[in-house]
Amino acid sequence: MKSLYRQLSSIKLTIVLTYLIVSVTVTGSFALLSNKEDFEAIDESLLIDWVWATPLSSAWWIILLVLLVFIFSLNTIVCTFDRLSSLFKVWSKGRKAENDEEETLVTQEISRGKGVRIRTLLPYIAHAGFLIALAAHLTGSIWGFRGDDFAAAQGDEVEIKELAGFSVKVGDLDMVVGKRGYPETMWGDVSLLGGGKEIKRQRVEINSPLIYKDIAVYIKNVQSVPKGIVLKKSDKEGEGTFLLAQGESVHLGSGELRLVGGRMDSRYGAMELIFIEKGKIVEKRWISPYNQRFKLIKFRDIHLSAEDIKSAPVGSFSVNRDPGARILFLGLFIFAASLVAHLFFRRSK
């Protein structure tokens, strides 16, 4: 037991584990490229779920990495405890360090009678921050979830299937495209509902999700989705303009005209029409008001001209839950702050 404690409290073990972790991750980074299919879903699901669902031939290095990080955490805990207690002994008894492991820069300093100062404790505070972040990551990996992307238009309410009683309601949506044709901003007015009541409402943008406790709602994209087309019909009976909505049909001569689909990007669009006669599709055509080649079509003796495409913005959203996220950031903050403070004290020395 004493030998195990001595092993676990060793800085040598820390260094060995560090380089083992590095080696496994290097191997893993190449394995990631050679088994792409197995790793496609890794970022979309919880690590624990992914490991269960993936063949060992692909997941082995992640399991090994988790194991090594676990031993590394144990090493950090035991080492921190051991250094603090040995530091206390050296400080209280005024003796010199006894061995290589014990003789760190701080114990040397204490041995020289400089006492315990904040700087002395900062590396151990950094260790605590690292451990907090690691524990928080573990919490998120077990009790969190990463929801699938879902599409929602203005006014839609979508239930969060992983969270009973919770839903997301979408208000206004928009995307602004800059002069060079690239999106400059995209946003959605989003409400998180719990038990039918609005819990939180926010304008959600890229880099600015709606965060309520450990639940976060993200906007991934906003697109214009074609909803219908304005067509001008001319035949021997005369001219007329009408709106044909997605999936709807109108009588046209001896047959029927139906709008079956469409495509849009930030500026242009085209719609797909089918002509049906006696229950059979006799022609399929694309029509677009933005392109002269596709603006006019003729079916039997009827001329159709595309005048406008009616579209509506549809957002792509996702909902994640990570009970460890805030604690993880707290741990990382403690870690980074104690490192910076350590540097400050180094400098003042």
């Binding site: 560090t18 972790i21 590095v22 980074s29 970022d43 880099n207 999700p209 976060a216 950031f329």
Partner: peptide, 23 residues
Amino acid sequence: YLAWGNYWFWEPKTLWSFILWFY
């Protein structure tokens, strides 16, 4: 976390940053 809903990604650059950090 704010942009993509995940503070860690299993992709080469993140892994190599982790490698460098641990190294």
